[in-house]
Write a protein that binds this DNA or RNA. Structure first.
Length: 883
RNA sequence: GGGCGCAUAGCUCAGGGGUAGAGCACCCGCCUUACAAGCGGGUUGGCCCUGGUUCAAAUCCAGGUGCGCCCACCA
């Protein structure tokens, strides 16, 4: 790019003209590609695989922005950096989508048959699945497209078979008849975490079982399940029922006689202290049944329809409830009126249908040893969770987890690799093994829970079970970034399976990731959860179209603190868009003024104080940002860079630079041009991870370099310390004084209703003899005082804090306003003096050695006293002038 | 039923034992040639309540109130 082209940046940043072109360029040049054989330390993040049915929403946009920022910074630091993209087949969700499509044609999956249906889903995936991958390009995600994976592709399927077989051989996968969560609409089993509990109003119905003195009253929220009762249970120590234990009572409506058993699980305080036992329809009851060897009677089919022969047969479970109650009432079995009762009801997380606990034969993962290892890895610090408080939730879950039901009665997913032979023989078929021959062998029809394959994601995507270069280089992955809402669904399971699959490694190297960064959820401008039904969702693509990807990213990153939810609204993205534009114009200013990026900074002796000041501030903010990245404090990173760029660079340094650039001293101009070049080069690099597009456009224009992506990070680099100019506290103090002076004059002028540029009348004294004298040109320029003899003569004096500015305002236009201000200052100074005095007395009392702290306090006290004297004097003078 | 978190400006939030902060909003004044998507100035606060610790509490502690969120097989 030639110099002429470079300065032809339009006065407004237009993201649409830049983003697509830049992204294509990055991809074409292979800048996202991780070269496994390149030297340097490795840094890897695997994408939380979005559902193949998904499209980009704000949660993804946040997740991707943060990951991309981490990745881009590490890449600039010289790490061999891999962000691995891909998608999840999302079992139930995807199957539901395709089934709905079929339903619109009046077909069900059964009309097609299994094979054709699965074929249809693949076809759907090819046509409309993975829309989100295209959308990721809009956001600027620097993922390595050559390594894209899908949970159902060949390699990952092999990983699934491998681990299934290994777990089975280790006795960690088993098949059993258990009470599981069943969705009568999806017609499949669900794991515990796929069930959402909501408090709902129910009724507690009291029913008398048996007759006369041998009768017992039970209370239930689900009267219809009494059709499947096989016992009544009471507490072993409950004297009220001691005489009944071991005997039988008659079950109403059926005439069956069922035993009364004593079981410690029963709470004698609750209800009547007697509980009906329905082993086939309640997990608790199932356990009681096991302990007492009770039969389990299933009373409904997979759709929740009553199958018990008799008057209720064929009724839906919710129709059966009132029908059963009516029949009982008729027989005088309802003891008292039913009571309203609020209790938690489980719903299918996919479709909202009330889940039915159902006795069924399913496959389970024996979780305990795996979960223990997963807990230990966090407890002993091999994996760090950010924010640390989230670890409490993690432990709570990992330590109390039930066995994981992994079989799903679906067709879309990894089919369970188990074959059943004649005589009940079971054979698990590992990868590369032939299924048993013979017509009598049949494969299990079910598929695995979609989270089973997601749990393998950090290593299956890198080639496991093969011993690949990628796996050796990039496992364990560096950070796992995701919302705290899927800590249990996904993070805990990756921990369990990662540690298990990689168990032959050094324990420190077996973990799937070294850090887990959990961000919050996106909320609307008023902090409410975004939901389609509430109509308060924001489409990130809409923002990208209207404000640009960088503005969208900056808005999200700026709100992100570990674990904290993020409220966003259009004001936020507007502000971010404005920031990008500010950056654009500031760089444009630098280019217009011939900024050049020097190989090395000009010698310190040739730098102006303003140059030294801004370079010192740059050093400070660089170190701060580096530190904040280590803590995943994205909000603070953005805040620090925003204020540095806008408040310090634009509002002060550029204004100071104008004076130097227009001054007669040609050499000073040249130095300023080099400092400008250096400053913007570094600033753009620092901002690039968060706002990649605009920084790339500006950085290439400024430096003529190929890409800011491959420029070195200004802070810490891989394996070396920061190469930074050090802080320059003297320059910071001096420019701080200058800013205080200018601000003071501006405020005065504004208070007095004077126009900008209008001379400030009748000021006495001068800045002569203070370091500010050297800045008179700059001060005049900042205050727009162009002609000498304009009366600008502020008084200034040096003290320990820098320079104190005084303005003589004897001839002010508005004496009252000035007086109010001075009185305010006086009050503040008095308070300060008071406080310092107390602290000194305190220190003396504690016999604190007169060290730095005490000296500091003493200085503060003296300064405050001086202020009081000075301001009092002026107030007095003001009063005299008034009189 | 357990566990966790949060209450700070009109809104969304940061901060954190020693003079209350940001962005947005609001008010006043500016088209000052990098930027009106801008510039300068300004206003706004019982830091939820009650106690405790301390010379000093918005900050630490206890209790309360109000909101979130997570987990949960007491019918």
């Amino acid at each position: 790019m030639t110099a002429d082209q470079r300065i032809q940046l339009p006065p407004q940043y237009s993201p649409g003209d830049v983003e697509g072109r830049r992204y294509q360029d990055w991809v074409a040049r292979g800048l996202f590609h991780a070269d496994v054989s390149a030297p340097g330390p490795a840094y890897c993040i695997v994408i939380p695989p979005p559902n193949v049915t998904g499209s980009l929403h704000m949660g993804h946009a946040l997740d991707h922005t943060l990951i991309d920022a981490l990745i881009r910074r590490r890449r600039m630091q010289g790490y061999v950096t891999l962000w691995l993209p891909g998608m999840d087949h999302a079992g139930i969700a995807t199957q539901n989508v395709v089934e709905r499509e079929l339903a619109s044609q009046g077909l069900s999956r059964h009309d097609l048959g299994r094979e054709a249906f699965v074929e249809r889903v693949w076809q759907w995936k090819a046509e409309s699945g993975g829309k989100i991958l295209g959308q990721m390009r809009r956001l600027g995600d620097s993922v390595d497209w050559s390594r894209e994976r899908f949970t159902m592709d060949e390699g990952l399927s092999r990983a699934v078979l491998t681990i299934f077989k290994r777990l089975y051989d280790d006795g960690l996968i088993y098949r059993a008849e258990r009470i599981i969560n069943w969705c009568p609409r999806c017609l499949t089993a669900l794991s515990d975490i796929e069930v959402e509990h909501d408090d709902e109003d129910g009724e507690l119905t009291s029913i008398r079982y048996g007759d006369g003195p041998d009768s017992v009253v039970v209370a239930t929220t689900r009267p219809e399940t009494m059709l499947g009762d096989t016992a009544v249970a009471v507490h072993p120590d409950d004297p009220r029922y001691a005489h009944l234990v071991g005997r039988e009572v008659e079950l109403p409506l059926s005439g069956r006689r069922i035993p009364v058993v004593a079981d410690p699980h029963v709470d004698p305080e609750f209800g009547t202290g007697a509980v009906k036992v329905t082993p086939a329809h309640d997990p608790d009851d199932f356990e009681i049944g096991r302990r007492h060897d009770l039969p389990s009677l299933s009373i409904m089919d997979e759709r929740g329809v009553i199958t018990v022969p008799g008057p209720f047969e064929g009724l839906d479970r919710f129709e059966a409830r009132p029908a059963v109650v009516a029949a009982l009432r008729e027989q005088g079995r309802i003891v008292s009126e039913t009571r309203p009762y609020v209790h938690a009801v489980g719903h299918c997380s996919r479709c909202g249908t009330i889940v039915e606990p159902r006795l069924s034969l399913q496959w389970f993962v024996k979780v305990e040893p795996l979960a223990k290892a997963a807990g230990d890895a966090v407890r002993d610090g091999r994996v760090k969770i950010h924010p640390a408080e989230m670890a409490v939730r993690y432990f709570d879950w990992v330590d109390n987890m039930h066995d994981w039901c992994i079989s799903r009665q679906l067709w879309w997913g990894h089919r369970i690799p188990v074959w059943y032979g004649p005589g009940g023989e079971v054979r698990v078929v590992g990868p590369g093994e032939q299924p048993p021959a013979g017509g009598d062998w049949r494969q299990d029809p079910d598929v695995l829970d979609t989270w089973f394959s997601s749990a393998l994601w950090p290593f299956s995507t890198l080639g496991w079970p093969d011993d690949t270069e990628d796996l050796r280089r990039f496992y364990p992955t560096s950070v796992l970034v995701t919302g705290y809402d899927i800590l249990f669904f996904w993070v805990a399971r990756m921990m369990m399976f990662g540690l298990y699959a990689m168990g032959d490694h050094d324990p420190a190297e077996a973990v799937p990731f070294r850090h887990v960064f959990l961000h919050g959820l996106i909320r609307d401008a008023h902090g409410r959860k975004m939901s389609k039904s509430r109509g308060n969702t924001v489409d990130p693509l809409d923002w990208i179209d209207r404000f640009g990807a960088d503005a969208t990213r900056f808005t999200l990153a700026r709100g992100a603190s570990p674990g904290g939810d993020i409220a966003i609204g259009e004001e936020w993205v507007t502000g971010a868009r404005n920031f990008c534009n500010k950056l654009w114009n500031a760089t444009r200013f630098a280019l217009l003024n011939g900024a050049t990026v020097p190989d090395a900074l000009p010698a310190a002796t040739s730098l102006a104080t303003a140059d030294r000041w801004i370079l010192s501030r740059l050093a400070a903010v660089t170190a701060e940002v580096d530190e904040l990245y280590e803590q995943f404090e994205f909000g603070k990173i953005c805040e620090a860079l925003y204020h540095f760029a806008w408040d310090e660079v634009c509002d002060w340094y550029l204004e100071l630079a104008k004076a130097a650039l227009s001054g007669p001293d040609g050499q000073a101009g040249q130095v300023t041009r080099e400092v400008l070049g250096y400053l913007f080069d570094r600033l753009l690099r620092l901002l690039h991870p968060v706002i990649p597009f605009v920084t790339e456009e500006l950085w290439t224009a400024l430096t003529g370099g190929p890409s800011v992506m491959t420029a070195a990070w200004p802070g810490e680099r891989a394996g070396e310390a920061a190469a930074q100019p050090a802080r320059d506290m003297a320059a910071e103090a001096e420019i701080g004084s200058l800013m205080a002076l200018v601000t003071e004059v501006r405020r005065f002028r504004s208070d007095q209703g004077l126009r900008p540029g209008q001379p400030v009348p009748a000021m006495l004294g001068g800045i002569g003899g203070t370091p500010l004298a050297a800045h008179e040109g700059a001060i005049r320029s900042l205050l727009r005082l162009t002609s000498p003899g304009d009366g600008f003569t502020p008084t200034a004096s040096l003290d320990a804090e820098g320079v104190t500015v005084e303005l003589d305002t004897a001839a002010t236009i508005d004496v009252a306003a000035e007086r109010r201000r001075m009185e305010k200052d006086l009050a503040a100074a008095r308070k300060d003096a008071d406080q310092a005095e107390r602290k000194l007395a305190n220190d003396a009392f504690l016999a604190k050695a007169p060290g730095e702290v005490v000296d500091e306090t003493r200085r503060r006290l003296e300064a405050a006293r001086a202020d009081i004297a000075r301001i009092s004097g002026r107030v007095a003078a003001l009063s005299r002038g008034e009189a």
